[in-house]
Write a protein that binds this DNA or RNA. Structure first.
Length: 473
DNA sequence: TTTTGAGTTGTTCGA
DNA sequence: GTCGAACAACTCAAA
């Protein structure tokens, strides 16, 4: 009898455009799809963990429809996989690579352990357009600046996506599986999953629909509309991409087709996909980007740790409407518009002089589209401590940003209830979602600014200056 | 090896 | 109100 292969799924919850699946199918062996709730996965923030559960549920159904199953197990990856090998007689394991430091360390250990026991263990691409080490400068190094990176990869061939199989070959006997509900992945979502749920669209089918909706209209205006948080100008694919519910190659080729038919916004969209790619390139080559100042000379900058103003920031109570709308959007919907992220991050790190790590951690707890590479790069970019960062004097003024990007107040009204005669459902949802300990009340007046914008800006600028001239070290 | 051109998303000030 | 310059100097990447 042919021994089965284990397919170890992590952030690739799909059947379409999945190289590891195509390779495994080609062997003709029975396939056993597995997801393991290991310590690394347990460490996810509240919202990402809850969202993972939705993704797993959708993926399990898709597998069932394809005559297969998703086997769920809990425990350290290495021991759990070994246990499954013993139970099933599997001859090998396939998975799609991940690139964050914790996953890399785990996967390296798993691979050597399996191979030492004579099993085949193969990692595959699938999460990215280009493996991070395959994009090199003329000198053979890695890129630290986005534009040259973009110029290098824009015309590079991306392998065509492999379509999903209609059926997966099943083993004669299935190993036991945990029940997803028993994992309680929603447990840390104390703000009420029911409030965030309407804003999420889990699963491969939903992701495909989203892509087609975006490319059949909004992409044409993406270059301008994507900057307006009050409109629906973006693809919203980030939550699906982070769990691999759609393949990045599939997205790339579809967007490229839009570009070739002359869609005005398609190139901007392709560039955004490459930003995601660039963040992984950086995380692979400089993994400390997730934990420490990318530029070590920033270690002496007088960042503040946890402080009352930072807590007001997390609670959407800074008195700065664009910032508060952004923070409440994230709390209620699980996502935040890209421009709002920049404004919220600039405000925390500059006007409040608070360490970017505090913002990064809060985002990691609240975002259903949380991505280790993009979150780290984005925060360090905003703070100024990262690669290709904004110059230190480039401090977003939330009031000016309002004039430019939310002139009619659509975005602010959508998420800030105070002062409105009949606030909308999302503005009210924030108060329903917020923990009691925050003691928020929509009847109370909107708070005064906790920091004067001009003073906050000047304080940040003088902090840079007092470090002895340049901030570049 | 040296040179050269350029670098996501901004703000303010003064003409 | 609009527009251009200043805000710094440095590093990156390629020629």
């Amino acid at each position: 009898m042919t021994p089965p292969l284990l397919l170890w799924f992590r952030r690739d919850l799909r059947l379409d455009d999945l190289p590891m699946l195509a390779t495994a199918l080609a062997t003709g062996q029975p396939l056993i799809p597995v997801f393991i709730l290991d310590p690394e996965t347990e460490a996810l923030g509240a919202a990402p963990k809850w969202r993972l559960g939705l993704g797993l549920d959708a993926f399990a159904q898709a597998l069932t429809a394809a005559g297969s199953r998703l086997i769920l197990r809990r425990g350290p990856a290495e021991a759990t996989l070994l246990q499954l090998v013993e139970e099933t007689g599997a001859s090998g394991i396939h998975w799609s690579r991940l690139y964050d430091p914790a996953a890399k360390a785990r996967d390296t250990g798993v691979k050597s352990m399996l191979r030492a026991r004579g099993l085949s263990a193969d990692s595959h691409p699938g999460h990215l357009l280009h493996e991070p080490w395959t994009v090199e400068t003329g000198q053979g190094g890695f890129y630290r600046v986005y534009t040259p990176y973009w110029r290098t990869v824009r015309s590079r061939d991306v392998p065509a996506p492999v379509p999903a199989p209609s059926r997966l070959p099943a083993p004669d006997q299935w190993p036991a599986s945990d029940r997803l509900a028993d994992w309680q992945l929603h447990k840390a979502m104390n703000r009420g999953a029911a409030i965030v749920a309407p804003h999420t669209r889990p699963g491969e089918e939903a992701a495909r629909t989203r892509l087609h909706e975006f490319l059949s209209g909004p992409v044409d205006h993406y270059d301008t509309a994507r900057d307006l948080p009050g409109t629906r100008g973006t693809s919203r694919l980030s939550e699906n991409l982070t769990y691999g519910e759609i393949g990045i190659r599939r997205v790339w080729h579809a967007a490229l087709a839009a570009f070739h038919r002359g869609s005005a916004g398609a190139e901007t969209f392709l560039k955004e996909l490459v930003w995601r790619e660039f963040s992984y390139h950086l995380m692979h080559h400089t993994p400390h980007i997730t934990t420490r100042n990318w530029k070590p000379e920033w270690d002496s900058f007088p960042w503040q740790g946890d402080n009352p103003q930072a807590r007001a920031w997390t609670r959407g109570m800074t008195g700065e409407p664009f910032v508060d709308a952004a923070m409440r959007e994230m709390y209620v919907t699980g996502t935040m518009h890209n421009r709002a992220r920049m404004i919220a991050a600039s405000y925390l790190t500059k006007h409040l002089m608070t360490h970017w790590k505090i913002g990064l951690d809060w985002f990691a707890d609240c975002l259903t589209d949380w991505d280790p590479a993009a979150n780290a790069m984005g925060w360090q970019w905003a703070a100024g401590s990262g690669p290709d960062a904004a110059p230190y004097f480039r401090i977003f003024n939330p009031a000016t940003q309002v004039e430019k990007f939310d002139p009619k107040g659509t975005y602010r009204r959508r998420f800030i209830a105070e002062g409105q005669r009949s606030p909308g459902p999302e503005a009210l949802a924030f108060f329903a979602a917020a923990p009691r300990a925050w003691q928020l009340d929509p009847q109370r007046p909107y708070p005064d600014r906790i920091v004067d914008l001009a003073q906050g800006r000047d304080r940040a600028l003088s902090a840079y200056a007092s470090r002895g001239g340049t901030v570049e070290g």
